[in-house]
Amino acid sequence: MNDLITILYAAIASGTIILYATIGEIITERSGILNLGVEGIMLMGAFFGFYLAYTTESLLLAIVGAAVIGGLMGLIHAFMTITLQANQVVSGLALTMFGTGASAFFGVSMVGKTLRTSFEVIPIPILSKIPVLGEILFNHNILVYFAFILPLIVWFVFNRTRWGLALRSSGEEPLSSEIMGIKVIKVRYIATIVGGIFIGISGAYLSVAYSRLWVEGMTAGRGWITIALVIFANWNPLIAYGGAYLFGGLTQLGLNLQKFNIPFPIILLKSIPYVFTLLFLLFISLKGKRSNLPKALGESYFRESRG
């Protein structure tokens, strides 16, 4: 039982990394822009967040800094794909490569450093006293709690505000949206930048709050897992909870296989997150429902072509 609580607790903590990034990518993709640069943005956020936390000892600055760098990375992708109309797949790959390289380039000085500050666990009064559930859910740091409400906020914005409508219609029917007075280009720029901000924060959460150290390439494919989870979540921020925490849970369960006396070569356990991600995608494909896939996702939008 205690083992299980530990595993579920870890599932929430590790699922949070992916939840932030998944929400960010959903925002971007809903506007019609596919950003495959998640891995690179996360790494930049992780490095920059750690660097600021280490040098300034201010956690707030670390998160804000990671958000800014994430937003800037989003801006690069937006400029490339919207203004310069570059292929979205290639620009995303370039962004991943750039983020991986630049974070490793600047990160050399931070390898092996330990943080003197960290996000403290804040037990939520009353709720944290609930047996089992309280231990699993309400004994975390503030970033985990914020991740609890973020998808709700984003869902609300998507479905109950004019902003959300503009965002979704830009991703579905950019041409008719423009005719209806929506500034598609502006919407897509903002969505890609805001998406980058949350992906940057996910990186900072990883390095500053979760693992509390900086290692080159420490995201280890989580950016790609995120892109898969967006599909799994059917571009719906509420299902993203399920995707991120379920994924966190299954991964933790897999990593703890030997606790349950299931023989499995320990070194191969590292593959579990990737294999699970493929299984998630397989499951979605078998179910065959991808109703929220933005129709214009990945396509360049030529405003002039209305002409």
Binding site: M80, L84, A86, M97, F98, T100, G101, A104, F105
Partner: peptide, 22 residues
């Protein structure tokens, strides 16, 4: 210089040529 300088240069070349297509 950190080893990653090679990756950064590759990424920048890719970005630059990608952006020049237009």
């Amino acid at each position: 210089l950190p080893a990653a300088v090679g990756i950064v240069m590759q990424a920048l070349i890719l970005f630059a040529i990608l952006g020049s297509e237009l």
